[in-house]
């Protein structure tokens, strides 16, 4: 069964540590060139179509800023 996933990222709470990027098996996410109000380069999806909704990123996020949804395809 295949899934397509997507993320809702609380970019204002993201500290741009990048731990989630290492954890993503599909290279879906990266740090933005833009910064949030705290000055952190926050997380964004750069390869949305590849996301399988595995939640690896959310699971390692120290600040719990990622919400994960997925749907069967």
């Amino acid at each position: 069964m295949a899934f397509q996933g997507t993320l809702v990222i609380d970019t204002e709470k993201c500290k741009g540590c990048g731990v989630c990027i290492v954890g993503c098996p599909k290279k879906v996410i990266a740090l933005s060139k833009k910064v949030n109000h705290k000055g952190y380069n926050y997380l964004e999806m750069v390869n949305e179509a590849e996301c399988i909704g595995c939640a690896n990123c959310a699971v390692v996020c120290p600040d719990g800023v990622i919400t994960v949804y997925r749907a069967k395809i």
């Binding site: 397509q4 996933g5 540590c17 909704g53 996020c61 990622i66 919400t67 949804y69 749907a71």
Partner: peptide, 29 residues
């Protein structure tokens, strides 16, 4: 996906909304 799919992961409400003071990437969070 958000509307029709399943919610796989969300921040637990047992944590408050306060932004943690820990450094970026710290395991405490």
């Amino acid at each position: 996906i958000i509307k029709n799919g399943e919610l796989v992961y969300r921040r637990t409400p047992v944590l408050t909304d306060n932004v943690m003071h820990y450094c970026p990437g710290c395991g405490h969070g």
